[in-house]
Nucleic acid binder design. Sequence first.
RNA 1: CGGGGUGUGGCGCAGUGGUAGCGCGCUCGGUUUGGGACCGAGAGGCCGGAGGUUCAAAUCCUCUCACCCCGACCA
Length: 415
Amino acid sequence: MKYSALFPKTERQAPSGTELVSQQLLYRAGYIDQLAAGVFTLLPLGKRTADKITQIIREEMNAVGGQELAMPVLQPKELWSETGRWESLKGAMYQLKDKSDKDIGLAFTHEETALDLIRKHAHSYKDFPISFYHFATKLRDEPRPRGGLIRVKEFVMKDLYSAHTSEEDMNRYYEIVSQAYFQVFKRLGLDVKRVTASGGVFTAVPSHEFQVLSEAGEDTIFYCQKCDFAENKEVASVAEGDKCPQCGGLIAVSRGVEVGNIFRFGTEYSKKMNVKFTDQSGQEGYVWLGSYGIGVGRALGTLAEIYHDERGLSWPEDVAPFKVHLVSLQVGDMKVREVAEGLETKLTQSGFEVLYDDRDESPGVKLADADVIGIPWRVIVSPKSLAAGGVEVKRRDTSTSEVISASAFLKKLSN
RNA sequence: CGGGGUGUGGCGCAGUGGUAGCGCGCUCGGUUUGGGACCGAGAGGCCGGAGGUUCAAAUCCUCUCACCCCGACCA
C-alpha cells in the first residue's frame, strides 16, 4: 500500500474536546473519525487493526469449538417481549416502528436471537452442547458516551453463546471460554484481570469481567497484588489496604476498562422462552445458556491507550495495521526509488504487509508521520543508507537502528 | 437526567457593538531534503441555528441544536 494513496492522511492536531490519548492519537494518525457522540467511523488504518483483533478472537473462539455465524441487527419486538426485556431495556435499546407500524428493536445484544435459534434447531440431548458466535454491530442508546472508543452507542462485539443440558456442563464450558479469553487478550497484548462482578440486569448469577487496569477505564477494581483475586467495586467484599481473602496479600484499587465479559444465564431465559431439550430418559429439560462478549472497538481503543509514547502510537506486532513502514527519503534519487520499490515488491510477495511512504515530503514530515501511525518495523531507504550499504531498520518501540541489506532485512522479518 | 464547559475557514485558536483575523494545513511557482524546511503568490468563513434589541451584532437578550467533561446510569 502506498501512503500517497491512503485515505486519509495524518493530522497535526487532535480536535478540541478529545481527552484520552488513545482518541487523540487514533484521530491524528487517521484510524478513526467521529460522526456523532459515541458514533465512529473506522478508517482504513483502523479497520485493518480491528480486523487483526477480530482474527485473533476468531481463532481462539474456533479453538474452543465456537462456530461462526451471523445474527441480525433488526429484531422483532415479540422476541424481546418473551424475556421481558422489551420493557426492561426501554430507553437503552433502540426501539422503533417500521412503515407498517410494526415494533422493531435494534440489536442490543443477542441472547434472545440465540435462544430462538436453539429452540428451533436443537431438540435432543444429542444436539448439545452448542457453541456459536458472531461479530455483529450492537446498538445501545447510551446516556453518555465517553472516552473515544471506550464507551460508544454503536460498536462491533464478538458474542459467543453456548447451550448445555446441565449446569455442570455450562460451568465446565464457562471455564474453557474463560481460558480462551485469557489467550485472546494475551495475543492482543492486553494484560487482563478476571474480575468478579454482578450480572447486572443480565442475570443474578455473578459474572466475570476481563479488565485492563487503566485510568481510561470506567470501572473501579479491587485486586490482590499477589494472587488473581479481583472484584468490581459494585460487588466488592474488600477495600483498598485490606488483606486478600484468598492469599493474605495486599488489596489495591485501580480503574479498569472492561474489554470482555462472561455470563452464566443458566435456565433463566430458556424458561421464559421455552427452550427445551429431551434427555436420554425422554424427560424434557430447560437449556442452560452461557454468553460471552468482547468489544472489538473497545479493545482497539484500550490498546492505543497502552501502546503509545509521546510521538504517537506503537502497536504490538500482532495487531498492527501493517508490519513494515517503508520510508524513502529523497524520492528524486533514482537509486533510492529503485531500491524502495524493489523492497516493497519483495516484502509484499513474501506475505508481509507494507505501508510504503512514497511521497515527496521532507524527512521530518515522513518520519513524524511514521511515528504517529506506529507500525512496528520501520525501514528507511535514502542516499545515506545506500552509501552505508543498505537500508536503515528500526523498530518503533526502540531507539536503536541498524543499516543492513534489503535481503538481510527480509530474512530478519521471516524469523 | 442533574451540574459544568465549548461552538468563528479542513484542524487549533484570537477577536466585549462599527461589517472577521492568526498559526498549521491546502493550491501554484521557485529554492530545499535525515526529524514536522524556506521565499513569493493565492484559495477558503452567511462566526452552530432561529428569533429579538440596535442606525449597526461573531460580540447584547431569549429560545434551540450539537459536542466535551463530572455525576447518575452502564445491559
